[in-house]
Design a protein around this nucleic acid. Structure first.
Length: 101
DNA sequence: CGCTTGACTCGCC
DNA sequence: GGGCGAGCCAAGC
């Protein structure tokens, strides 16, 4: 793990930690905030290992279409309990709950 | 050390 | 709205 990678991780997690309750952010949005608009995938990877880097509300991060993380069944109830509006069982109403950083 | 995979996104049809 | 392909970067094997 190089220094630059750690910096990226630190920035990404820092942004994730700032997502307010009841709101969600997209991978691309976070990637753009940390200065890497084309690295949404990396944000996803960081989220996947986020628990190992520390405790962050990574459940508030969804794809650009509002889709939840495939395979992570706990994400939906967690978001619902925070008041995030849902479009269907696998998608949040991204248009209404998208975080305006 | 190289190839594959993935919690992505965007343009096009 | 949904399917396809290309671009991007790091972690795993």
């Amino acid at each position: 793990m190089t220094k630059m990678n750690r910096q990226l991780i630190t920035d990404v997690l820092g942004v994730v930690a700032k997502i307010p309750l009841g709101k969600v952010a997209t991978y691309g949005q976070i990637a753009a905030i940390v200065g890497r608009p084309h690295d949404a995938r990396l944000v996803g990877r960081i989220m996947h290992n986020a628990s190992k880097y520390g405790k962050y509300p990574c459940h508030r991060v969804v794809t650009a279409t509002g889709r939840l993380v495939p395979g992570w069944l706990d994400q939906r109830p967690m978001l619902i309990s925070e008041g995030v509006p849902f479009r269907d069982s696998d998608h949040v109403d991204i248009k209404r709950c998208r975080w305006q950083g």
